[in-house]
Design a protein around this nucleic acid. Structure first.
Length: 268
DNA sequence: CGGGGTTCCTGGCCGC
DNA sequence: TGCGGCCAGGAACCCC
């Protein structure tokens, strides 16, 4: 499940390949989720950026190729032709025979080519909250955003509004680190500050590890991430809490599997 | 417009 | 061994 650390790793690994190049040919699966890929043929790629879980490739004709990896998306660079694969949903070829390839088994990913900054066709990107490491995201701002509705705290994290780029893995990890109950609906200012610090800690560490590969995620060079060996609670329901030894709880919260420690993440 | 439900997808896994 | 059923879940989409 590519979240911010995975998408940032893909961005960093693709950047040296794509920036300064242009695509001379492209193909896309007929689904409207992927068909726009061919519109990126022609212009030079000026930059490889990221906002939340979205990859943004700036094109030099004032447009952007927007890529969301969904659940199983893999965006990889290939200097040489690669074997055919039934799960490839789009590819772009450069003049020198290299290829950028989008593979996505479950087709939850999505591609778009838009005028620069014109994200209205992608509502989550259009209304995306601040980047985790943005100085504008202060404890105060985060606390207010988390208390602006009465939904579960974890659901608010996953909404991409209080903060961009957090998915199921890092939401559970950050709540565990900050000792926040994911099912609480309100949070005190000091706990919000602790949760923001935990998010920054875990997202930063996961980027250093090249992201979390549970199954499908790969870097832009096709490599596995490493953060799967550093998870405190995600996917560990029933195992002892690394902090207190009590078994971690797991249940579905707002349609998302949630793992936490009832003992050291008590309801407030 | 916030909130809640539904849909998109298919490999992997479980139980019989 | 084979197969039906269920699960994983981000974001678009629709409705109230």
């Amino acid at each position: 499940m590519p979240e911010l650390p995975e998408v940032e790793t893909v961005r960093r690994t693709l950047e040296p390949h794509v920036v300064g190049r242009s695509f001379v040919d492209a193909w896309a699966h007929p689904s409207s989720k992927f068909a726009p890929a061919v519109e990126a043929v022609g212009p030079v790629v000026d930059a490889a950026r990221r906002r939340g879980k979205y990859l943004l490739f700036d094109l030099d004709d004032r447009r952007e190729l927007v890529v969301h990896l969904g659940m199983t998306g893999q965006l990889t660079w290939h200097d040489e032709p690669v074997d055919d694969d039934p799960y490839v949903r789009a590819w772009w070829r450069t003049a020198d025979g290299a290829m950028l390839r989008f593979r996505d088994v479950r087709r939850f990913g999505r591609l778009a080519v838009v005028d620069e900054g014109a994200y209205s066709s992608l509502p989550t990107l259009h209304h995306l909250g601040p980047e985790p490491f943005d100085d504008q995201l202060t404890d105060e701002v985060f606390w207010r955003a988390l208390n602006s509705s009465s939904r579960h705290l974890k659901t608010k994290l996953l909404s991409q509004r209080p903060i961009a780029g957090v998915g199921n893995i890092y939401a559970d990890e950050a709540c565990w680190i900050a000792q926040v109950a994911p099912g609480d609906r309100r949070i005190s200012r000091p706990r919000a500050a602790a949760l923001l610090a935990a998010l920054r800690d875990v997202l930063g560490t996961a980027i250093e590890h090249g992201g979390t590969t549970l199954r499908d995620y790969r870097t832009g060079d096709g490599d596995l991430g490493g953060h799967q060996h550093h998870l405190w609670c995600y996917g560990r329901g029933g195992e002892p809490c690394a902090r207190c030894g009590q078994p971690l709880s797991s249940r579905v919260l707002d349609a998302r599997t949630t793992t936490w420690c009832r003992s050291c993440q008590p309801r407030r």
